[in-house]
Design a protein around this nucleic acid. Structure first.
Lengths: 193, 193
DNA sequence: GCTCTAAGTTGACGGCGTTCACATTAAGAT
DNA sequence: ATCTTAATGTGAACGCCGTCAACTTAGAGC
């Protein structure tokens, strides 16, 4: 019978890879719902499994959310890397990175918020894998800082803060979502000149 | 039981001014709890009233939260106004405004988050009173923008984004809370020079 | 083939936001 | 002064939530 062969294993009493399925379903639900409206039982329902089955793979709800946040962070880092390379690196690449940061937030509002709502705690719990992605954000900022005058750390922080602040203000409806505006704000955000 | 808490006397079946008491209690609880861990029943308990009594003054929980956010926004605006005046206005006053913005966020994390989590929706619901406070934020940014080259709107946005982004990143544990750093980041945030 | 154990289920508990029927009170008209 | 009425607070209940404990299933290894 039918059974798909490679990607998705057969279904029975035991789910093939429930942990991955839960994360996938959670990310899908986050495209429509806000992070705090996402329920444990809701995710279980989406996967077609009992609510308590989740506890075989995550100690509690916060751990599930942290896993979603970790995956979101990886995607954010990937989007930035891609934008930087597409722009050819250097200063242009750095500006592109900032713009990609903001556009990722606008394209994935709930996920973006979840990343930063959980990153502080997730860092302390897991420690390793998402550190990699976050390091890219920091490294990007620090790298450009050397090209200009002033304190490198301060310039890096300003660039990060501009991107993060603009993303948040647009998400919260404080600033109209204007695609061209993103480039102008982030671009001139390369201060010192 | 006696014990009313403060200024307003007259306790019996009817509470003196429950609406005000609920907001006061809510703000007090937000100093210890995160906004989404704040329960309707918890606020009612703090005031010593039945959970459902709240519904005589607010249509639902979100309305209570919006009221708390409105009060928080007023306080934020007041803190900025005070900082600006203390610095003597002008460019120095503007930098002080930005630093005050960040420091307010650090001093009132849950409340600051609530302000921006609810401001978009609160605007559409209430419309008037908090607009006043928010207008101060925008006006401040726009005012300085004229002094420098470049697009006034862009410069204003950059300044706001730097303050907002720095506040958020510090609240989320992404950037260490360093008092001197706030001034340096926000200060040089006055770009164009 | 039997056993052991990881993975999923069922049922329950307390807490939440919210609704509805009811109790109490302050205030204005008589 | 009394009666009426609308405003304000109470209590019980509903459905949903996160989580725990006890049971069931099925696949892997001797």
């Amino acid at each position: 019978m039918s059974t798909s062969e490679s990607a998705i294993p057969a279904k029975s009493y035991h789910h093939g890879d429930l942990r991955a399925a839960l994360i996938e379903a959670g990310l899908a639900l986050l495209e429509a719902r806000a992070a705090d409206d996402l329920g444990l039982r809701e995710v279980a329902r989406a996967v077609g499994v009992s609510p308590t089955a989740i506890y075989r793979h995550f100690p509690d709800k916060r751990a599930l959310m942290a896993a979603l946040a970790a995956e979101g962070l990886a995607r954010l880092a990937a989007a930035q890397r891609a934008a930087s390379e597409a722009a050819g690196g250097g200063v242009a690449g750095f500006s592109a990175t900032g713009a990609a940061y903001v556009r990722f937030a606008l394209a994935n509002p709930a996920l973006f918020r979840l990343i930063f709502a959980n990153s502080a705690t997730a860092d302390l719990l897991d420690g390793k894998p998402e550190d990699d992605a976050m390091a890219f954000l920091r490294a990007n900022a620090a790298a450009l800082a050397e090209g200009v005058g002033g304190d490198a750390q301060v310039v890096a922080l300003q660039a990060w803060a501009i991107a993060h602040g603009l993303a948040m203000l647009m998400l919260d409806g404080q600033v109209p979502v204007d695609d061209a505006l993103i480039d102008r704000v982030v671009d001139a955000g390369v201060i010192g000149k």
